[in-house]
Design a binder for these strands. Structure first.
Length: 490
RNA sequence: CGGGGUGUAGCGUAGCCCGGUAUCGCGCCUGCUUUGGGAGCAGGAGGUCGUCAGUUCGAAUCUGGCCACCCCGACCA
């Protein structure tokens, strides 16, 4: 039925690329690696922001905004941080252009900056430089700040939403009096992310910690949530870092304790980005197009009228608009599409492509029977129900769709999680099935790197609350106390 | 950033090898008929052929630089 898309089975990657563009979520821009997020896609991002922002506020955080441009010297203050980001920083070197002889525009060499500026790839340095002046005593702590911003990382290979040179995100940066409290914050925010992703995006996630090798540049511990996409590849959906005193020391941020002496503060940072859009798309959508969970869809219900002539439309609209106002009263977002330049069949296909969770069809035949037709996007089923009480029915249906999508994704994830006890078995699972592979690992970076070289699989995380289990590393045969999750990843 | 591919109207394409200002479909505009799964007929508009330079009397076509996108690697949320 899909006239628009290649199927997932034919070419998963192409399916994703086409879907993003054809469902009107985003476009490539004129600038390499950068995207234009279109209104339909941005509406979904706004919903994500709205819910996350509330969750941040509910856990005591406040929003602020720090500058896009960061003095280059700030970067060199935390050694591993520079090392991690140096290779992908865009640098501002001049502050003025001028006309050349040919009528073109060139950089004015006389306007060279004394100190070059970096376009933020993340804001730890500028924020910790600022926190130095905000924090003097234990009474200033904890400091719980979040910012919604754009960042730039000069990526070699980009894909819409999954990896773009510029992306939107939020970054939380907190300061605490004790290591214990900072670790608790790190874990709390990971849980916020996990709850958000599961409840609103209907994507089940594995909560875990990263290996030393995969850790954020400058962190002592990186926590993450990992989700499995339909093609069996893993996608990191959010990270939360315990930064220890690394940034406090680099930027000399100390506080007077209750007892008097000065101590360095403890830090965390945590973020999710527009990459979540990629996760959302890949987790639920099918060969007909996007499938959106009702809780995150910008339009939850669309009503398509079917009629003959102007008089017909008027009669149908009367009933349709009544339903619209009833749904709105229940805080359900609904669109009545009475455009007469497109026919119903065209609209059906379009809204399927765009993933609207529920479609209501209302024709003159229904008027006579007092019914409407309700179609759900998640399983493409349709039924005819009485127009009386339709608003209640739809409210329940939206909930049902939300749950169904989560359960479907949960089932897929658990069915795609396999246990391997030997390297041969490990490789076989990766090449034949994909998904998460739970296996013993000796804990060394060398082994992790070797496995990555040979299979392209990386350790996605060491799951939290992992049960300890004696075993042998699938690669080196050395003793191991727990299994970790491997996967091919985005 | 290395290897391979692509770029012609809003979208998808023919033409390119063998130089002579561009084909078809969808979409768009107007009108009429239609409307329960991507409507039909009639008429119409829309292109400096990615971009810049070169070769030539003449370039979508040949040559080179650049830009963007896709695939495969190295790097990464």
């Amino acid at each position: 039925m899909s006239k628009e898309l290649v199927t997932r089975a034919e070419d998963y990657s192409k399916w994703y690329n086409e879907l993003v563009v054809k469902a009107d979520l985003a476009d490539h821009s004129a600038v390499r690696g950068c995207m234009v997020i279109k209104p339909y896609g941005y509406g979904i991002w706004e919903n994500m922001q709205k819910h996350l922002d509330k969750m941040f506020k509910d856990t005591g955080h406040v929003n602020a905004y720090f500058p896009l441009l960061i003095p280059k010297s700030f970067f060199s203050k935390e050694a591993s941080h520079v090392e991690g980001f140096a290779k992908e920083c865009a640098v501002v070197t001049h502050y003025r252009l001028k006309n050349d002889e040919k009528g073109g525009i060139i950089v004015d060499e006389d306007a060279k900056l004394e100190e070059e500026l970096i376009i933020r790839p993340t804001s730890e340095t500028i924020i910790w430089n600022t926190y130095k002046s905000w924090i003097q005593s234990y009474r200033d702590l904890p400091l719980l700040v979040n910012q919604w911003a754009n960042v730039v990382r000069w990526e070699m290979r980009t894909r819409l939403f999954l990896r773009t040179a510029e992306f939107l995100w939020q970054e939380g940066h907190t300061a605490h009096a004790t290591a214990k409290e900072a670790v608790e914050e790190t874990e709390k925010m990971l849980e916020v992310y996990a709850n958000f992703t599961e409840e609103f995006l209907a994507i089940p996630v594995i909560r875990g910690v990263k290996t030393a090798n995969e850790r954020f540049a400058g962190a002592l511990e990186t926590y993450c949530i990992e989700a499995l996409m339909q093609d069996g590849k893993a996608l990191q959906c959010g990270t939360s870092h315990f930064l220890g005193q690394n940034f406090a020391k680099a930027f000399d941020v100390k506080f007077a304790t209750k007892e008097g002496p000065l101590e360095y503060v403890w830090a965390t940072s945590w973020g999710v980005s527009t990459r979540l859009m990629g996760a959302l798309i890949m987790a639920h959508s099918d060969d007909n197009g996007l499938v959106l969970p009702p809780k995150i869809a910008s339009t939850q219900v669309v009503i398509v009228p079917i009629y003959k002539g102007e008089e017909g439309l008027k009669k149908v609209s009367e009933v349709a608009l009544d339903l619209v106002s009833k749904l709105k009263a229940k805080d359900i977002s609904v669109k009545y599409d009475d455009r007469d330049n497109q026919r119903p069949g065209w609209k059906f296909a379009k809204y399927e492509l765009k993933g609207i969770p529920v479609r209501v069809t209302l024709g003159e035949r229904d008027l006579a029977n007092g019914t409407i037709e309700v179609a759900r996007r998640d399983n493409l089923s349709k039924e005819t129900i009485s127009v009386n009480g339709a608003d209640n029915y739809i409210e329940i249906l939206l909930n049902d769709i939300q749950n169904n999508l989560f359960n479907k994704a949960l089932r897929r994830t658990s069915e795609s999680t396999h246990v391997a006890d030997s390297y041969d078995e490990f490789k076989k699972i990766l090449s034949e099935k994909g998904g998460f592979v739970s296996a013993h690992w000796d804990g060394t970076t060398e082994t992790e790197e070797k496995i990555k070289e040979e299979t392209k699989a990386t350790i996605r995380c060491i799951p939290l609350n992992n049960k300890s289990e004696e075993g042998k590393c699938i690669y080196s045969g050395k003793p191991s106390k727990q299994r970790v999750l491997f996967a091919l990843a985005y």
